[in-house]
């Protein structure tokens, strides 16, 4: 058993880029939850972090859109966004092409994935790393699920992908953490930005904490769009982590709407049986 940590967090660019516009009290408590997540990952002994993100057209476009992609490089530059706008300076995060190759090879036994030897990080990965590995000194393996360009990755496949990732992680000797980033309800980068369906978020996180597969897969894209916006499509990353956690139960450490960050800012993790 080499999966040592499984959790989820938000990645909205406003978290770092518009920090000065948020209520300081709620922002500080959210940041503290992020810091605790970083401490928990470090305490787990993780030698690498698989970051499952819904990227935002930083690497993949509708000319060749993979359902799933995994990075296979020794380093990853970021962020693609203007550093002043995002509030994160340019960086190079370390990767491990050999570890990626072993994980990809095992995942491929049951789920078709694309691999990428080039990958530029956008806020979907850069914002979580800003808190989780602020010195960018921990090995990262980026993963993308198509949550942006319809037809989207079916959520049933996101579950299967999570199971495949778990099997792959457990097949390598390195200690690995899995972190899903995204959603939950939000209408990012549209005129509706700032709208948050808090009740929907709480219901989703309840399903996520119970790790109730049937309930987590009981969504259609039409329902999600109506109730949780196009940003809600990013629940795929949370669902993949749920599957990877192998039935473990979860705890929400922080979840409060921060409209200027455009999302219910969330930090949650599973209690893995190690």
């Amino acid at each position: 058993m080499t999966l040592v940590y499984a959790g989820v967090c938000s990645h909205a660019p406003g978290i770092t880029g518009r920090a000065d516009q948020a209520d300081p009290d709620v922002k500080d408590r959210f940041y503290a939850a992020f810091d605790q997540m970083a401490a928990d990952i470090e305490a787990s002994g993780a030698e690498a972090i698989i970051v499952i993100a819904a990227e935002h057209f930083a690497n993949f476009f509708m000319n060749n859109m993979p359902s799933f992609a995994i990075g296979m490089a020794d380093s990853y530059p970021g962020p693609i966004e203007d550093p002043a706008w995002l509030g994160i300076d340019k960086f190079s995060a370390p990767g491990d092409a050999d570890l990626s190759r072993r994980i990809i090879t095992e995942v491929m036994q049951t789920v078709d994935v694309s691999y990428a030897e080039e990958w530029k990080f956008d806020h979907g990965i850069a914002v979580p790393l800003h808190f989780l590995t602020p010195k960018f000194d921990t090995t990262i393996i980026p993963v993308n699920i198509n949550c942006q360009g319809p037809p989207l990755t079916p959520i049933t496949r996101a579950w299967a992908f999570g199971e495949a990732l778990r099997r792959a992680v457990d097949s390598v000797p390195e200690k690995v953490a899995i972190v899903g980033t995204g959603g939950i309800s939000h209408w990012p980068a549209t005129p509706d930005s700032g709208k948050i369906n808090e009740a929907w978020d709480q219901d989703f996180l309840d399903r996520w904490c119970r790790n109730d597969k049937a309930a987590l897969l009981d969504y259609t894209d039409e329902q999600v769009y109506a109730d949780a916006g196009q940003g809600g499509f990013e629940i795929r990353t949370f669902i993949t982590v749920a599957a990877a956690a192998g039935g473990a139960k979860g705890t929400v450490h922080f979840c409060e709407p921060i409209p200027i960050f455009a999302v219910s800012c969330t930090v949650a993790s599973y209690e893995l049986s190690l």
């Binding site: 935002h56 057209f57 203007d82 706008w85 956008d122 360009g149 930005s193």
Partner: peptide, 14 residues
Amino acid sequence: VNGQILMHFAALHQ
């Protein structure tokens, strides 16, 4: 244009 693409373009223009 998808907002995720448009947002980055707007950021480029400050």
